[in-house]
Computed example of a mutant assay.
Amino acid sequence: MLLKRLDSITIGQYIVFTESETIYELEITGEKKTLQRFPGEGKRTLRKDNEELNIIGNFMIVVGEPAVFVLEPLGIFGNCTIRTTTRVQKIERIN
């Protein structure tokens, strides 16, 4: 099922496709929200790509706009990591 928007409280599993050909797999349950980032072929890689990361903030993803995620700290400094995507092209519910 294709969606035009997704918020952080809608339980399910989703795939988000971005303009840079990066794919994000999201899982939202009652207790936790996670994502995995899979960069497109030959695209820039980021720390902890292909690993499940905890989303600790709320979000709203809208097709045509960049998505912003507040993640668990991925380094030794700070209390969170912010990830911003290129424009979202498609949101697909897979479960």
Rank of each mutant, 00 (worst) to 15 (best):
L6I: 04
G64Q: 03
G75S: 10
L26M: 06
P73L: 13
E27R: 09
P66G: 07
V62R: 08
K32Q: 09
Y24R: 01
G12K: 10
T86W: 02
E65H: 13
V16E: 13
L3P: 05
I76Q: 09
Q89A: 07
S20D: 15
I76N: 12
E51C: 14
G75I: 11
I23Y: 07
I94M: 01
T84R: 11
V16A: 09
S8I: 03
M60D: 14
I28F: 13
I11Y: 15
V70R: 08
N95D: 13
P73F: 08
T22I: 10
I61P: 04
N58E: 13
I28H: 14
E31V: 03
S20H: 06
V63N: 12
Q13L: 08
E51M: 14
G57H: 07
Y14P: 02
L74Y: 04
V62G: 02
R5I: 00
R5F: 12
F69Q: 01
E21G: 02
I94Q: 07
T22S: 15
V68Q: 12
L6R: 13
P39K: 10
C80P: 00
Q13Y: 09
K32S: 10
T10I: 03
G78R: 05
R47D: 08
I11R: 15
I23F: 06
P39F: 08
I23W: 04
Q36W: 02
G12E: 10
R37W: 08
I94V: 14
F69R: 01
K33L: 09
E31F: 10
R87T: 15
N58I: 05
E52S: 13
L35Q: 03
T85M: 02
I76W: 03
G30C: 07
G78E: 11
E52K: 15
K4R: 09
I55R: 08
P39G: 03
L53S: 10
E25Q: 09
L26H: 07
L26T: 01
E19M: 06
F38S: 12
F77K: 12
R47S: 08
V16S: 06
I9P: 04
A67G: 11
T81W: 02
Q13R: 15
M1S: 09
E52F: 01
C80L: 10
L3A: 09
F69L: 02
E41P: 04
K90T: 05
R93N: 01
T34W: 12
P39D: 06
E52I: 11
K33E: 01
T22C: 14
G42I: 11
E92P: 00
E65R: 11
M60G: 07
I94H: 05
Y24S: 00
G42Y: 14
T22N: 14
K32P: 00
L53Q: 13
K48C: 10
K48N: 12
Y24C: 00
Q36P: 00
E72H: 05
C80V: 05
F17P: 00
N58M: 04
K4Q: 12
L71F: 13
D7C: 05
